[in-house]
Write a protein that binds this DNA or RNA. Structure first.
Length: 215
DNA sequence: GACCAGGTCCTTG
DNA sequence: CAAGGACATGGT
């Protein structure tokens, strides 16, 4: 009972991840180019992905589904297309701010691709409306960087599993028990979301706890 | 009608 | 720093 809680948390995380891999196998997620991933990452904040898909389709119809297009579009046109994702006024502002950062500060997506991950992450976080989860989603799914995404589902599963590491440390915890590989991170995150949506719906689900305890 | 959804920022104590 | 509120629409 006196072992380091960090080591204990690692074992629990490993058991959860291993169970999810056996249960769900390979999952493909977030198709689309880098710009679309960036837009989707903002739109999905506090929002179901089904609604985000509708908004992305509307943006495509209007040829607004790219960072360059968002950069020059009328805010009202963006708002109208993304209304179904909620918080649409604020999200339109965030999209415009992100596009301005990409196009003006960075000089386009192409320039960002050559930036070191650490620097790229810091730059994204400097944009208003881009927090840790959004930045990591963009890095992992948009720029193919091994940056593990911690979202509400991951936090919930970790809590149910009895993992004691506080939220700010979860990213490092999960990264420490996985090979540093973008595809591995993507799949692990996708499985966590799928599992949480269908099985870990209560805030203290027994299944996660047992899983983390026994493997 | 209440409650929640793949967050983030800003304001208070 | 922790806690609370604002942002807003759509589905159960």
């Amino acid at each position: 009972m006196s072992g380091s809680s960090s080591a204990d948390d690692k074992i629990k995380a490993e058991r959860i991840l291993s169970f999810l891999e056996d249960t769900y196998g390979g999952i493909s997620w977030w198709p689309g180019d880098t710009g679309e991933v960036m837009i989707g990452a903002i739109l999905t904040q506090q929002t179901r992905w089904e609604n985000v898909k509708k908004a992305l389709a509307l943006l495509k119809e209007k040829n607004l589904c790219s960072i360059a297009a968002i950069h020059t579009a009328a805010p009202e046109d963006i708002e109208n297309a993304i209304r179904c994702t909620g918080f649409y006024r604020m999200k339109a502002r965030r999209l415009i701010g992100l596009a301005a950062y990409v196009m003006e500060t960075c000089g386009g997506i192409g320039c960002m691709e050559t930036m070191p991950t650490k620097e790229l992450r810091a730059g994204l976080l400097s944009v208003n409306g881009v927090g840790e989860e959004t930045a990591d989603s963009i890095l992992c799914y948009g720029f193919c960087r091994p940056s593990f995404v911690i979202d509400a589902y991951t936090v919930r599963i970790a809590a149910c599993a009895g993992i004691k590491t506080p939220r700010p440390g979860l990213k490092a915890l999960f990264e420490s028990v996985l090979p540093e590989n973008t595809s591995v991170y993507r799949q692990a995150h996708a499985r966590i979301v799928e599992y949480a949506k269908e099985r870990c719906t209560s805030k203290r689900c027994e299944e996660c706890r047992i899983l983390a305890l026994n493997g």
